[in-house]
């Protein structure tokens, strides 16, 4: 598996898009830091961008990589290699290259700005951690969808729809539910519902770390009570991990049953 990962990664490091993706973060982060005014402001702005952009790019890259390497995958399938190793190798290759582009693009300017000598280092680490998780989660979902759909257009459409659902539609429905059932105590519902969306979960994790949950009112306080503790933090990280494991398990499930 690691050999496939190595070559997928190697193949992707030659791709122009990976550099463009990394360079975009580099430019964005640098300008937010030096022109925007300070570490904590840059972290909040970056959070908003990362929460939307990382899932989108991971989705697009995952689907595109799978479809583009389809014939090559067939060549690999005829080699004495386990099926699952081929697909996990490719998936991890995509996820790792995305993660490294993000890590370098966002990390370098922060290091140069001196984040290591600042109390913001923990907030920054949570931001990066969340970015890494989102790369892993959404490229796994994308791979799973691409594996299940032979038709490229359908696969692409579905993957983008899933992203749109988690990034936009879910929040809309969530808010609608909150305002509709305003008369009931909704705090546990709010916590439960955010666990089902990796983007929301990531957002809450960062906001809690930034200590601005007071902005979220009473619900924020309840969430802070739950997730602000070490147990809550571990719980949310566990759920994020589950969000990686589930689609990865889906990839395995489809891969061993699929005809090529």
């Amino acid at each position: 598996m690691f050999k496939i990962l190595k070559y997928s990664f190697y193949d992707l490091t030659r791709s122009r898009w990976m550099y463009i993706y990394g360079a975009f973060y580099l430019l964005l982060t640098a300008s937010l830091l030096w022109l925007g005014g300070g570490l904590s402001k840059a972290i909040i702005s970056l959070m908003n961008i990362i929460l939307v952009l990382v899932p989108l790019i991971a989705t697009m890259f995952g689907v595109m990589y799978y479809y583009n390497s389809r014939e090559f995958t067939e060549l690999l399938l005829a080699q004495p290699i386990r099926r699952i190793h081929i697909f996990f190798g490719q998936y991890l290759g995509v996820a790792c290259s995305l993660a490294i582009s993000l890590l370098l693009g966002v990390g370098l300017p922060f290091v140069l700005y001196g984040v290591f000598n600042s109390p913001e280092i923990w907030n920054f680490s949570v931001l990066l951690l969340v970015g890494l998780f989102l790369s892993l989660i959404f490229s796994a979902i994308a791979f799973f969808i691409a594996l299940r759909n032979e038709n490229r257009i359908k696969g692409f459409g579905l993957a983008i729809l899933v992203w749109l659902f988690f990034a936009v539609i879910y929040d809309g429905l969530f808010l609608l539910a909150l305002s509709q059932f305003n008369d009931y105590p909704l705090e546990s519902f709010a916590i439960g519902a955010s666990l089902f969306n990796p983007i929301d979960l990531s957002r809450i994790l960062i906001l809690l770390k930034l200590d601005i949950s007071a902005l979220m009112g009473y619900t924020g306080a309840v969430i802070q009570n739950f997730m602000g503790t070490l147990l809550g933090m571990a719980c949310s990280l566990g759920v994020l991990l589950l969000w990686v494991v589930l689609p990865a398990w889906g990839i395995r499930w489809v891969a061993v049953r699929k005809d090529f």
Partner: peptide, 13 residues
């Protein structure tokens, strides 16, 4: 040893 019908490989290698 298998020779597939369509030869397409990773383009960057």
């Amino acid at each position: 040893d298998y020779l597939p019908q369509i030869a397409r490989f990773p383009e960057n290698l």
